[in-house]
Design a protein around this nucleic acid. Structure first.
Ligand SMILES: NC(=O)c1ccc[n+]([C@@H]2O[C@H](COP(=O)([O-])OP(=O)(O)OC[C@H]3O[C@@H](n4cnc5c(N)ncnc54)[C@H](O)[C@@H]3O)[C@@H](O)[C@H]2O)c1
Ligand SMILES: NC(=O)c1ccc[n+]([C@@H]2O[C@H](COP(=O)([O-])OP(=O)(O)OC[C@H]3O[C@@H](n4cnc5c(N)ncnc54)[C@H](O)[C@@H]3O)[C@@H](O)[C@H]2O)c1
Lengths: 222, 222
DNA sequence: TTTTTATCGAGATGTTTTTCTCGATATATC
DNA sequence: GATATATCGAGAAAAACATCTCGATAAAAA
């Protein structure tokens, strides 16, 4: 039984509609249709309608949806209008890039502090965000009621750090390490599996090359 | 009709199996089973079997698969044993993080040069990779037969840069900008939609909170 | 005012993906 | 050598997801 009966595929598409709508608004367009959104983003228009329906937004025949309303509906649905404070652990290459990114606030996440085990990293500020020794995380997370943790430590450390986060009351983890965390079911984990992307890319490219250089179909062998 | 009849979901899971297998090998384990992999990664064991089957690897009853063989099969299937040279465009926060990452070579991708429009960035080396003026990309890409482009420029610039890449013979684009590129069908595009992750995370967290604070089911309204 | 048309939304249908079921088999134990 | 068991792999069933179809409706055009 699903608590939330909205397909996850829909949740994944909504942000892309959202960004498209922001661009439409910037260009001064006031209304749009499922057909327009679908054509721009490569999604079938009926699918767009179903997706938008879950946000509660209603369109009108012949006019479509007001861009402003749609943006507001998606924001509300994803709770992107309420910014939550987040902690980031692992202020290395990737962690630093995330700290330097302004776009997450629009997606409901504000990184208020970063943590690192290395004394070289801790103590500084990166992009205005303080980097603290990781030992300070549990106490601070509890006191600040932090709900979101961003995990950008090496894979070997990820499980231990995740457990520390959960122990400190963090409820949702955005995990960039290429590992599946073993945590209580109640914890929300979203993996950013960059390698998955590369798997698809690499395989498709290989198939394309094979097809180009003579033999037709794919597969490991005949 | 699909040229390549392997489900994309399978392609996305294989890298995660791969990393798990590397860890098993490091620990000295010689054989494993679909059940073990599935339990570790939260995938049903029959699903794991189907996924591994596409790589051509065969297991034996009562023993399972040799870890080494599986690793080799996945590498071959994804073409991760042949490293392709790639160009990265946009040596900003995110681009720099990617340049500093050693792990991609194992996934068949070696970034051999980066490009940027800003004169402040171009001319330096980042993590040993030269950063060049973006104007030099087309000629170099052609001469070096670059097949993969990594796109880490702001969303506004992404379409134009992608077109430049395609014009220079690049066949596959790994796109980090939050925009859907409009390119010839033949070009392979893999989007890393970080916001999709955040959509799911944020929504789940909101639903969880709503559930906790009284009312049961989710939804925008009654 | 009537007709045309773009769009919506609901439900039916089709496709893809995941899970379940079960017989086969190689190894280990008795 | 016979029996038990962990594992595989193939096919059936179920679930999730996407697409198709069609009547309704509001705006625009005739
Ligand atoms: N950089 C990338 O482009 C990239 C791409 C894909 C995946 N990843 C993944 O992201 C993670 C980070 O990658 P990176 O390139 O930023 O690595 P990195 O080595 O640059 O940074 C890791 C940081 O984590 C810190 N750290 C280590 N153990 C810690 C602990 N127990 N507590 C707190 N901090 C700790 C280190 O001091 C370091 O600053 C890795 O899991 C990597 O696999 C990175
Ligand atoms: N940094 C993150 O954590 C993050 C997260 C999600 C998405 N993204 C996306 O990744 C992209 C890059 O983000 P960032 O934070 O690294 O931005 P950034 O501004 O730090 O870097 C962008 C770089 O691209 C260069 N550039 C701009 N136009 C160019 C052009 N036409 N040709 C070549 N180079 C050009 C700029 O000089 C700059 O160095 C953006 O699309 C952003 O939305 C970034």
């Amino acid at each position: 039984m699903r608590v939330d009966s909205v397909p996850e595929a829909t949740l994944r598409r909504l942000p892309s509609y959202y960004h498209y709508l922001l661009r439409l608004r910037e260009k001064g367009q006031e209304a749009t249709s499922a057909a327009q959104i679908g054509a721009a983003l490569g999604v079938h228009h009926t699918q767009v309608r179903k997706d938008l329906a879950v946000t509660g937004s209603q369109g009108r025949p012949k006019v479509g949806h007001r861009v402003d309303d749609l943006i507001a509906s998606i924001e509300e649905f994803l709770n992107w209008n309420n910014v939550s404070d987040a902690f980031l652990v692992g202020a290395g290459h990737l962690g630093t890039a995330l700290l330097g990114y302004a776009g997450f606030e629009r997606a409901g996440v504000r990184i208020v502090a970063a943590f690192d085990a290395s004394p070289r990293r801790a103590g500084r500020k990166v992009q205005g965000v303080p980097v603290l020794p990781v030992e300070k995380l549990p106490d601070l997370a509890r006191r600040m009621h932090i709900a979101i943790g961003i995990l950008t430590v090496p894979a070997d450390e990820a499980q231990a750090v995740a457990e520390m986060m959960v122990g400190a009351g963090i409820q949702a983890i955005w995990n960039f390490a290429p590992i599946v965390l073993d945590l209580p079911e109640a914890v929300i984990v979203e993996d950013v599996a960059l390698y998955s992307s590369l798997g698809v890319l690499s395989r498709k490219l290989a198939v394309r090359r094979k097809a180009a250089s003579g033999k037709g179909s794919a597969g490991t062998g005949p």
